[in-house]
Design a protein around this nucleic acid. Sequence first.
DNA 1: TTGCGCTTCCAAAGCGCTTTGGGAAAGGCC
DNA 2: GGCCTTTCCCAAAGCGCTTTGGAAGCGCAA
Lengths: 369, 369
Amino acid sequence: MNLRELAAHLGLSQTTVSRALNGYPDVAEATRRQVMDAARQFNYRPNPAARRLATGRAGTVAILFPVERNLLVDPHFFELLAGLADMIARTEMELSLRATPPDQELDNYRRLVNAGRVDGFVLSSPTLQDPRIPELAALGAPFVVHGRTEVALPYAYLDIDNEDAFARATALLLDLGHVDIALLNGDPALGFAVDRERGFRAALAERGLAPFEGRVRNAPMTEETGYRSARALLERPERPTAILASSVLLALGVYRAARDLGLAIGRDVSVIAHDDALPYLKAETFDPPLATTLSPIRHAGYRLGEMLIDRIAGVDPQNLQEILTCDLVFRASVAPLRGEDGPRRGPTSAASRSRTKDDPRSSDRRPAR
Amino acid sequence: MNLRELAAHLGLSQTTVSRALNGYPDVAEATRRQVMDAARQFNYRPNPAARRLATGRAGTVAILFPVERNLLVDPHFFELLAGLADMIARTEMELSLRATPPDQELDNYRRLVNAGRVDGFVLSSPTLQDPRIPELAALGAPFVVHGRTEVALPYAYLDIDNEDAFARATALLLDLGHVDIALLNGDPALGFAVDRERGFRAALAERGLAPFEGRVRNAPMTEETGYRSARALLERPERPTAILASSVLLALGVYRAARDLGLAIGRDVSVIAHDDALPYLKAETFDPPLATTLSPIRHAGYRLGEMLIDRIAGVDPQNLQEILTCDLVFRASVAPLRGEDGPRRGPTSAASRSRTKDDPRSSDRRPAR
DNA sequence: TTGCGCTTCCAAAGCGCTTTGGGAAAGGCC
DNA sequence: GGCCTTTCCCAAAGCGCTTTGGAAGCGCAA
């Protein structure tokens, strides 16, 4: 069933049917209802190719990613994509996934925009001075960024409050008596790492403290680097008593290092990690359960989709800037600093651990400030 | 620059230019060359929407995935996608990523085909009696399957030789003196798990052996289940001396369990895992390095893209059925069964470990049969 | 010379939609 | 009643491509 047939069946012109369907004003309400009903009845769906050709709009949003292996070290990307795809599927739009050789990335953006093949983009993993932002802004193409940068242009973004999350996590550890806290962070070229370190330092500074020597480490966020960094930190006698990790995968490495060294997570070293809620690596199933700053990345993908649709519809980027607050989920990987008089369990760990099983997000939250 | 302008510039009709560009026969070679040159010079690219409208072909291949969280437990999916996107990007086609509510999955396939919005599909994670296969076959839509099923229809697929890989891995362990070998496998509703178990049992049977009681375990392939299964197996005195794991993530759990129990991987328990070459979880960086049956899943995605393009072009599905052989990469997580006379390192482990760092794929391969 | 078959090209008709530029009918105002 | 809006609808012109159905030109055989 196409528009012509539908119009013929209704005894109306294609124009009127088209306008009725697309919400134009100059159609009588009664007519519009008729048209809508008929469209539903015949399960009419406008041919997207025809629509594209006629409107010049592509009906497509795209996400480009470099084929280079290194940049795909990120298991978070797919979760973001899943949320985005979920949202886009609820619209008439399509989500196009495009691989690009890294050296042709900007070219590809340009080409896609100029050829009118894509209406908008999601930019993920932006660097602090991400060249894609000025490029797309100059092209006049709508886009939304997952994360913030230092680019001085108005652009739409969705980010989590990394600084606040890590400040709160740090403050919690300080409240529990920890002083020597380490930070295992990601590549500082990516904005979130900078923000997290800032939050970490700020919380320390608020109590007149600063990180001890060598306590801030930057590296790719893999299990392996988590292990190595933690091992390097923990095997010396003047070891930190708490570790903040930028990802659950890093924390996995920390757990392994601690076990190797005969240290008990919680009792001997407290750990808090940032949790993007990857479905195949759950902090609550760690042993002991891992305390986290939580912000499901899938939800971010979904929200980015909504924002991009708005952006394409013409909403000012200034009005499309959101910062999500992370939950701080307390679990047994965190305990008060042990006194000198021997092992002593933190008062909260046992209770929180059992509660965690049921609903980590509601019952286990605990404001740290 | 569009076709009309290009034709005008050349002093030819649109028809001729179009035919020249699309390789139709009734164009003089000299003319064709002229057209090609001009097209290159002006960087002419046909408008995909117009082409779609005119031809009825969508110029799009799609991959649908259920939004349900459970089915995205699979970090392999994105790697597959990356390879697929890489291949598709080299064509004029697009890759459309579509989320679908699980209960509307078949409907969505039907709708996309009938509306002519998609030219072909990649089916990933098929079940043994996957209903998508008869559905798409009935619709006459081209598709390729990642993996094999028990569906009795001719369809295009790419699979790895799971049975052979696990048979060879098992045989290697047997050659090294192991007898009590455990298999940590995935959900048996997915075909690869069945094949792997078959290979495992076949290799044992070849020596007149069978798995010991409780040695075959099926569960989702996460670190956590790897840990639990391994722990359950290893903490009893009559423990297996070797473990085959269906994924590197499972093996990570096995390593953790072994450490917890004071067992040394390699010396006390040998481990071989199947490795899909996820870039953020490298078997060669395990400690000790993890022996694997290797088959990069990204490459599978790439190849599936090529096959799908062929399938769309009309190649018979019977001629598009491929089974990739896995490499068996020997590393220090495997050692000969220790005799009763105390600890003794396997003769090969130290050497292979250092070699592994350089080129695990070439120098470390070792036929097991 | 005529007719036939090839090769090479072209005019024009869509593909299914949106959008421009009216136009007829109805209603409001003097 | 005449005129001007407003409301509601429509015919037709594209959007940029492919494809159908010739047609022109040429060589060659009859």
